[in-house]
Design a protein around this nucleic acid. Structure first.
Lengths: 229, 229
DNA sequence: AAGTAGAGGATTGTTGAACGATTCCGCAAT
DNA sequence: ATTGCGGAATCGTTCAACAATCCTCTACTT
């Protein structure tokens, strides 16, 4: 048996992907939060949820901890778990991080061509979502686009962090009415950034992105403040 | 009683910092890992640790989950918890993130003067650590310095992420012998960066930092690969 | 009427025990 | 040297219990 075969096998080992019940439960809850089924501020009672999912309180609590660390749930001692409610400062911090990381990802690019597959697919998905007026899906597509930007840095940890940041952002989007307003204008701008990168003009892409993020932040923060007040 | 007094009190409420046992346990374990008492690869048996700390298995497991999410522990299903053992790729990714975030933090600076207190204190602490040949403390001081760089971005989430990245890096430092070699050369370079910022020359600071990080990464990755092989 | 104090109920925090499932380790068999 | 097979150890998960804490509602005071 050649060493090559063994190496490939050991590469695949992580794909076996066995997961504990707690992690699967966390996955289910994460989905509900991200998809908007669980609204910010909603309380998640241990007994109630545990019974509904058929897991014990202990296992459920393990799942809660995971989501707390992802900042999707907030834990108040002796009061329970709540779907996180972002403040306007949280929102601004999220954009601060986005601007830091996304722009840095573009800046550190070497010579073209770049691996634009994720971003390309996101724009395509966004176009068809817009055509069919699925505004929530358009928002998802836009987020995938920015996930794709960070992927250009080639750092698993940066990807992870960005995933968390975007998940948190959904907590904001889900309490906003009129989602179209916050997603549609940015589709062509994503496209423009993509074009710049395709042309090998990373500095231009970075400038576009910086303005994009500032605009988006302003619009969202204003709307969110209004929604809360 | 004026409203002002009440407002100040409510601002301080979060400082009361009530924490659950699980979080305190996590804090203790985190300390042990970061200080090097628990070496990478070491297994943390539930019963053993639980008995030593006087907490139940369930509570301990909650603490383990927290640290797993911080990437300080690794969880293998049905095998238990282990102090994380970084690969060389992990190490390179950590530096990728550092370069992304730290340089971005310097780049987004507005007009001087800057809030250099953390960095200044870190250099001072580093100097006295070097004078007394406490090399491990010198490493800690250097890390504080870079934490201070990210603080310039004014983003709690970025601070948090950096804290995690630096904690992970300790997992590497703790398996390296001859810590002096990896810390001492960087103290004057930190000082130089600090000086550049004090002069209001952020672009120069950023250039210095970029080279610093690349040098450090090379040296550390080489040494680490040798240590592992 | 308004505000305070306290009792009672509900929920969380933590523990301890239990049992099946999985892994680890040593030993025999090939 | 490799394989196969127990037995011991450990993990994964559940359940039940109780103390601590919080919430609510009522009754009382002013």
């Amino acid at each position: 048996m050649t060493d090559n075969v063994l190496e490939e096998l050991s590469d695949d080992r992580k794909l076996l992907g066995r997961t504990s019940t707690a992690e699967r439960v966390a996955g289910i809850l994460r989905g509900r939060i991200i998809e908007g089924g669980f609204r910010p501020g909603m309380r998640l009672a241990e007994e109630e949820i545990g019974r509904a999912l058929g897991v014990s309180r202990n296992t459920l609590r393990e799942a809660f901890r995971l989501l707390t660390h992802e900042r999707l749930l907030a834990h108040e001692l002796n009061r329970g778990m709540f779907v996180r409610k972002l403040t306007v400062e949280d929102l601004e911090d999220l954009y601060r991080v986005r601007r830091l990381v996304e722009c840095a990802a573009l800046r550190q690019l070497a010579a073209p061509p770049y691996a634009l597959h994720t971003m390309d697919a996101a724009v395509t998905a966004g176009l068809s979502a817009r055509a069919e007026e699925r505004w929530r899906d358009l928002g998802t597509a836009n987020m995938h686009f920015h996930q794709g930007i960070v992927e250009l840095a080639g750092s698993p940890r940066a990807d992870d962090m960005m995933r968390g940041v975007l998940a948190e952002l959904r907590l904001v989007f889900h309490v906003m009415e009129n989602p179209r307003r916050f997603h549609e204008p940015y589709l062509p701008r994503n496209r423009e950034i993509l074009e710049a990168l395709r042309d090998g003009d990373a500095p231009r892409a970075e400038r576009l992105l910086a303005v994009y993020l500032d605009d988006s932040r302003h619009q969202l923060a204003d709307g969110y403040a209004r929604q809360l007040g």
